[in-house]
Nucleic acid binder design. Structure first.
Lengths: 243, 243
DNA sequence: ATCATACGGTCATCCTACAACTGCGCAAGT
DNA sequence: ACTTGCGCAGTTGTAGGATGACCGTATGAT
């Protein structure tokens, strides 16, 4: 292939790199909503790629509602409120404060998830939750298998709410958190905390099985707080101070 | 342009149509996670478009983590849990039950949003919320201006939580709901309900201004329930029955 | 002054060619 | 028989050019 000098670095595929670059420019406010982007040809020149690559990048951003392309005129930046998709920047989660906020959101979702599930769950829902719990307890160390079972446990509860959106949102948030703390966990082994973790899950399960919404919600809230603390994220402190 | 006979219909841009078609095939389970997609050339033939269009469609799905393409091998369907984006099918919201579920999720998010905001909001946050409230009350009929102010009100509260993810998620959910009920509203004018709606918002604002988290949360919960009822969606009933 | 038309710019789509990568088979060497 | 290396076919990734569709504006005729 012809040698090209690209202004953007590293490993990812070209369209993704261009999309990320544009996305950051938009998020960062370098291009304000309503403004027109450079033409595809100009972007192709700027990034040192073909117009095809630029179009694929724009296709991604357009699917998210971040920009709107109008034939014969150009592509325009949309207001952040009218996005058609939610996407979480994995890079941003390396910042401790963002991780705190995401855990806070997770706490909200999961607490209510457990509350609703306790009120609604059927016996087969409980079976699925129990199965995940057993698998979690079966492992003697907190490693990949346990983490997988942990996710299964929380997803099974979310599914037991009977609300597919709750399930989708919780799955998504949990997955983002998992992937972000995966590498960090290696430097901070948690093997000795397995019992604590499993005990918290058992408490949640018992409340669900007893169909006690309030107890389930409370147990879940404590569990998320504990889980956050175990990866070095403090939640409760923020409630008591102003902005 | 050369005449082509496409197997897929209507108005949208080609890549979007192809992406939707593939997306539905995947969601519908026609292609199970882990399976390989047909090659780009085959898809191009199948849909009656060029390979370029197929690539743009795949670029979108890839950005969502729905499929993963590996050079030299092919494209593979990913498990739904490892999506990197949340997207809500506007079509699905025409089903009343899905709308109920989305309102339920909104209720959860907004209730906690108000609770947190009451505990944390600063004076400039309150100013922004008050401004939206005044603008809402300024209109004598519930129309576009009021709806815009309504969204502003809820977003201002979400912003006052100081949690950007809460803001993003609430903005997203509210926008999805707004766009879905926009046309339906025309057949069901709500002009006479403006006072009720504004009164509910005032109650929320008062609780926020008084920094009373519990009252704010409760007022918000009732408001969302009321708002749902006003567009023909019933929420509370579901809590009392099993799946 | 008004309206129809022409023109350039831009996105949309198509096409072809080539590069990079993978998996597999085959043949030569051990 | 086993290993190693090479090449081939298939697939995605990227480049670049050509043409159609659409928009805004300038131009010119009425």
């Amino acid at each position: 292939m012809k040698q090209r000098s690209s202004i953007i670095g590293s490993v990812e595929a070209l369209p993704h790199r261009v999309a990320s670059h544009l996305s950051r420019e938009i998020e960062g406010g370098d291009i304000i909503p309503g403004a027109r982007l450079p033409t595809e040809s100009q972007l192709a020149d700027k990034f040192g790629v073909s117009r095809n690559v630029v179009r694929e990048a724009i296709a991604q951003l357009r699917a998210d509602g971040m920009i709107e392309a109008r034939q014969g005129i150009g592509a325009f930046v949309m207001a952040p409120e009218q996005r058609t998709a939610i996407r979480i920047d994995r890079e941003a989660l390396k910042d401790q404060r963002n991780m705190e906020q995401l855990f806070e959101l997770r706490s909200i979702l999961e607490t209510e998830s457990a509350t609703f599930a306790a009120a609604r769950c059927a016996s087969d829902d409980l079976d699925a939750i129990k199965a995940a719990l057993d698998r979690m307890g079966g492992e003697e160390r907190w490693e990949d298998g346990s983490i997988e079972a942990d996710l299964l446990f929380h997803r099974a509860i979310a599914r037991a709410t009977g609300n597919s959106y709750i399930y989708t949102f919780i799955s998504f948030v949990c997955e983002q958190i998992r992937q972000s703390i995966h590498y960090a966990r290696l430097t901070n082994p948690l093997h000795d905390l397995v019992e604590v973790n499993v005990a918290e899950h058992v408490r949640i399960y018992d409340a669900l099985a007893a169909h006690d919404p309030q107890a389930a919600g409370e147990a879940m809230r404590r569990h998320i707080e504990g889980a956050a603390a175990r990866v070095g994220v403090e939640l409760t402190a923020k409630l008591n101070r102003g902005k």
